[in-house]
Design a protein around this nucleic acid. Sequence first.
DNA 1: TACATAGTATACTGATTAAGTCAGATATAT
DNA 2: ATATATCTGACTTAATCAGTATACTATGTA
Lengths: 151, 151
Amino acid sequence: MGFFNSKLRYALCAAVDLAMQPPFEACQSREIAHRQSIPGPYLDQILAALKGAGIVRSVRGAGGGYSLARTPDRINVGDVVRALMRGDRLFSSSSEDDPTDFNAPGVGWIVRDFEEKVESSLTAQLDSTTLADLVQQKISLDDSLSYMPSM
Amino acid sequence: MGFFNSKLRYALCAAVDLAMQPPFEACQSREIAHRQSIPGPYLDQILAALKGAGIVRSVRGAGGGYSLARTPDRINVGDVVRALMRGDRLFSSSSEDDPTDFNAPGVGWIVRDFEEKVESSLTAQLDSTTLADLVQQKISLDDSLSYMPSM
DNA sequence: TACATAGTATACTGATTAAGTCAGATATAT
DNA sequence: ATATATCTGACTTAATCAGTATACTATGTA
């Protein structure tokens, strides 16, 4: 439906959710799933990816859960995107797996070059927005609606 | 492999190819296909979409072919993208087909709102680059390589 | 009028990805 | 030990991507 895929959207929701919790306090995946309406087992996959990228920390066993590995102002949206898109789409590789000969010095070059400009300006935008920014927007929204549940 | 899909890349190559031909002179689809290394029948599909969007004009019968419907400086990349992405991906719709409840006033809202900001800045970039710009880059490239075939 | 040329339309196919689901293994606090 | 959690990997279903194939329609030229 949109520009992001659902996995990425879920990941961002989960990350922002964690960013709104008391810092470094473990939070169960099923709580996050419930608050953000994310399918439980699917969220587990996503959290695993976030953990692999060092965005999230996990504590196993009873009383365990997930927490952010850094403060929200030191995690940006680009980090989350890159964590999810290992092997997946959203301009996965920058190097070698060209199907056609866009290497020949022709129109294809120019098109590819333009594409890269778009990519890099997009990346810049993703990297300049932090989880803290998103949390702040959430708070502003709640304020403007004149009610303040922490959900 | 990249941010664009191959259909869009082909469409841009074809459009730029036409932009480099003598203005309003009909050009056969198979010639374009050959010059730009695009699978013939696949290009036909793409040209049909471009025609449907009023970007390209076609003349049927012997001696016919395709030409741009407007001058290259009045066709931008965004036009081509929108022509191709009818029903397809790359932020297809802006309205109603939300799978989950991103309508509830929660974190999902903020994520969706950020997503839309990204989309609109992307759209702005696509809309501010014309086919004429891309042709100019091609010419500059040829110059800098010190040889000037029109291909 | 007939033929060749060229675009138009539709349907089909194989490969890949998206979006989850499910079962079970592993770790840990009590 | 056991209940509670994460972790893992395989599996499923549907959609999309990237093209092919086939038949049809329109038009300029001989």
